[in-house]
């Protein structure tokens, strides 16, 4: 069975850089950016995407609804529908 892979998207317009996702990730996938986003906040960035196990803790605990975790399979399906 192939290892599942996940795609993490961070909405930098909504993220306020509270670091909850960085603290809660069991695999240390996320880190804080060292450059501010256009909103002025130092947002979270995905550093080690390959390590993601898809536990959804970051998405569930984001106070700003700014994180979306998608499994890669789903993405292919939605692309096929769209195109």
């Amino acid at each position: 069975m192939a290892k599942k892979s996940f795609d993490i998207q961070i909405n930098t317009a909504w993220c306020k850089g509270c670091e909850v996702c960085v603290a809660i990730c069991p695999k240390k996938v996320l880190e804080m950016s060292d450059k501010p986003a256009p909103s002025g906040y130092f947002t979270a960035v995905v550093k080690r995407q390959a390590d993601c196990i898809g536990c959804m803790e970051c998405e569930l605990h984001c106070p700003d609804l700014a994180i979306e975790v998608k499994s890669k399979k789903e993405e292919v399906k939605s692309d096929a529908k769209g195109g």
């Binding site: 909850v20 909103s39 106070p63």
Partner: peptide, 17 residues
């Protein structure tokens, strides 16, 4: 209306979700 008016790391946003 997003981003929310809550302070960064406020638990209320998590409750909203």
């Amino acid at each position: 209306v997003f981003p929310t008016p809550f302070c960064p790391g406020c638990g209320h946003g998590i409750l909203m979700q």
